[in-house]
């Protein structure tokens, strides 16, 4: 552990900024694949904040939540982040298959053209 270990709110601000960038991309892009890429940015922001809180406060919170010693030594936030990455991989596969299917049907993947359910 070095002296140059930044405090946790740096990570929180970094995650917030990345989430805001991804949200802006989700709201303003026209291409479906670009929207999926912005979603990946938002997943990354969540992972940063999860791992930062796990590193700083994971021990105290797991001490409150569990009783056994092997449970206390559990990196909960990293496990959560691994499952977030797993679900992100599944989401990317299904979403890109949906984008390809929509492209095959509509001949474009602009989200402005896919407005069948829009009122």
């Amino acid at each position: 552990m070095s002296l140059s270990d930044p405090p946790i709110f740096y990570y929180i601000y970094l995650g917030t900024i990345l989430f805001v960038i991804g949200l802006f991309g989700c709201l303003s892009r026209r291409n479906a694949i670009a929207i999926l890429m912005s979603l990946e940015l938002m997943f990354n922001a969540c992972n940063i904040v999860l791992v930062a809180f796990c590193q700083r406060h994971g021990v105290t919170y797991t001490l409150q939540a569990f009783s056994r010693a092997q449970d206390i030594e559990s990196p909960v936030g990293q496990i959560y982040a691994i499952f977030v990455i797993t679900i992100a991989a599944a989401e990317a596969a299904v979403g890109l298959a949906l984008a390809i299917a929509a492209y095959r049907h509509y001949k474009s993947i602009n989200m402005d053209n896919i407005n069948l359910l829009k009122w």
Binding site: I33, L36, M37, E40, A88, A89, A92, A93, L96, A99, I100, Y103, K107, S108, I109
Partner: peptide, 14 residues
């Protein structure tokens, strides 16, 4: 993985 998948989807679509 995911970026390669996205690049494949970009190249398969328009």
């Amino acid at each position: 993985g995911i970026v390669i998948l996205i690049i494949f989807a970009i190249m398969l679509s328009e």
